[in-house]
Design a protein around this nucleic acid. Structure first.
Ligand code: MN
Ligand code: MN
Ligand code: ZN
Ligand code: ZN
Lengths: 158, 158
DNA sequence: TGCTAATTCGCATGAGTTGCAGATTGGGTG
DNA sequence: CACCCAATCTGCAACTCATGCGAATTAGCA
């Protein structure tokens, strides 16, 4: 396959605000610490699909002494609550996605960046395979070159 | 989404025979050792998407003393030659797929088994997202319950 | 203000995989 | 067939990412 992913379409993005996450934590008897509040803020509308280490690095700037262990702890709590998606890709560590909308991803082969993709009418796919499997979800990962990297490889002067 | 994956469709499976892999290795100046030959055999038409550890366990029965390091070495060589696909899923270790056909996967939430799925007309999907991304490949992972596990959860007497 | 369960943090531990180097060997050469 | 040497094998150390643990700290409620 080879296709260009264009704009358009309806994109319902579901990301909780720090305030909403605070309420969600309290409702479950979980405490809201300064460390957690900071992470709520760093995750809010963060489109980078960061790793735990990346969040730790940013968090450390604003709160020196925060522990990587606490970052993992909070991310795992959020994932367990369904407020964070856990993504596994080639090339190392787990990435976290505060966008819990039903969406998919496009990963650039060259720079590794990960972009959100919204796919309509997935159920229209013609699939053949294991009889009797009842699929509840589907996750698509497109790979190729992002716009920036695509331009680079079209110019002879790289 | 929720759909049942049925049979039918054309499924062109591409898996090299041990003999073909032997030739491919020699052509590239790589040696064909007893260890590699054993792994070629264990991989041939293996539908289990095994991990390195799983292959090592089976290989050890037939060749006591074979090293896990050698299993990884050979799997990496095969992957570099494009004769093996490397699959990353939740729950631990890398899985290897000797089926290098253009296909996708369905993973059971309950038993974890991985089944091959063939998808037609992928390019008919309506996608919206990052403008300018040029997608060369797509990988779909369906999740839900396999036929066996699906039956179990329909019976009240679990 | 005081209590207490939840949390934080630092370190140890674990799983999975790769780096390394000395011993071994496949397979081409004479 | 014997020789040679680069490729390979093996065992162990090291490395990365993530989690277990427990003493010190703290959020949130009475
Ligand atoms: Mn995303
Ligand atoms: Mn497969
Ligand atoms: Zn790119
Ligand atoms: Zn199952």
């Amino acid at each position: 396959m080879s296709c260009r992913l264009g704009g358009g379409g309806i994109t319902v993005v579901v990301v909780r605000t720090p305030t909403e996450l605070t309420t969600a934590f309290r409702e479950r008897g979980l405490k809201v610490t300064p460390q957690r509040q900071l992470l709520f803020r760093l995750l809010h509308a963060n489109p980078t699909h960061p790793t735990a280490e990346a969040l730790f690095a940013t968090a450390s700037e604003q709160m020196p002494g925060i522990s990587l262990r606490t970052v993992y702890q909070t991310l795992n709590d959020l994932a367990a609550m369904g407020e964070l998606r856990v993504l596994l890709f080639a090339g190392g560590s787990t990435r976290f996605d505060p966008n819990v909308s039903d969406h998919h991803h496009a990963q650039c082969d060259r720079c590794g960046e990960l972009h959100d993709v919204y796919v309509d009418r997935l159920e229209a796919l013609t699939v053949a395979g294991f009889d009797g499997f009842v699929a509840e979800r589907a996750s698509i990962v497109f790979s190729g070159l992002c716009a920036a990297c695509s331009k680079l490889s079209n110019h002879p002067n790289q």
